[in-house]
């Protein structure tokens, strides 16, 4: 009984001394040279960048990203096929917008030309216009009713 107690005490003593000596190692490790701590920081940042890449590359990555935002719950609950389709949506919206802008721009050009033509037609014809060969040709080429 006494021998068991002695062994137990000895183990406890070993553990206390071990922890105290390891505490000394911690104090030493806190004084590492600057270049070493910088290389460790660089290694850590490299590892974190790889972790991000790995998460994005994994099949669950899109769902995880979707879950991170406030509105991401909806995206995260969609099937993978719908999530891929949803990722094309911004491109479709962009193309639709470009087409609308093109159509609006053409319409504006046509309206501007029509306005100029109208102004010309309702304006009084100056007498010098009849001496212009181009206008004379225009009058000759005008279809007869």
């Amino acid at each position: 009984m006494r021998a068991i107690s002695h062994t137990s005490e000895n183990h406890a003593l070993e553990a206390r001394l071990g922890l105290r000596l390891a505490g000394g190692l911690t104090a030493r490790a806190e004084c590492l040279p600057h270049d070493v701590t910088e290389r460790l920081r660089f290694a850590r940042e490299q590892a974190l960048a790889r972790a991000r890449e790995a998460r994005l590359a994994s099949p669950d990555g899109a769902a995880v990203v979707g879950m991170s935002g406030a509105g991401g719950l909806l995206l995260g609950s969609l099937s993978p096929w719908l999530q891929r389709a949803a990722s094309v949506l911004p491109l479709l919206v962009l193309l639709g917008g470009l087409m609308l802008i093109e159509q609006w721009s053409t319409r504006e050009r046509v309206l501007a030309a029509a306005e100029i033509d109208t102004l010309l037609l309702v304006d009084a014809l100056p007498p010098t216009a009849y001496s212009d060969p181009g206008f004379a040709e225009f009058l000759r080429s005008e279809p007869q009713p």
Binding site: A43, R44, Q46, A47, L48, R50, A51, A54
Partner: peptide
């Protein structure tokens, strides 16, 4: 560094 990257990946 190798161990950190293996863990992260």
């Amino acid at each position: 560094q190798d161990a950190m990257i293996r863990l992260a990946e």
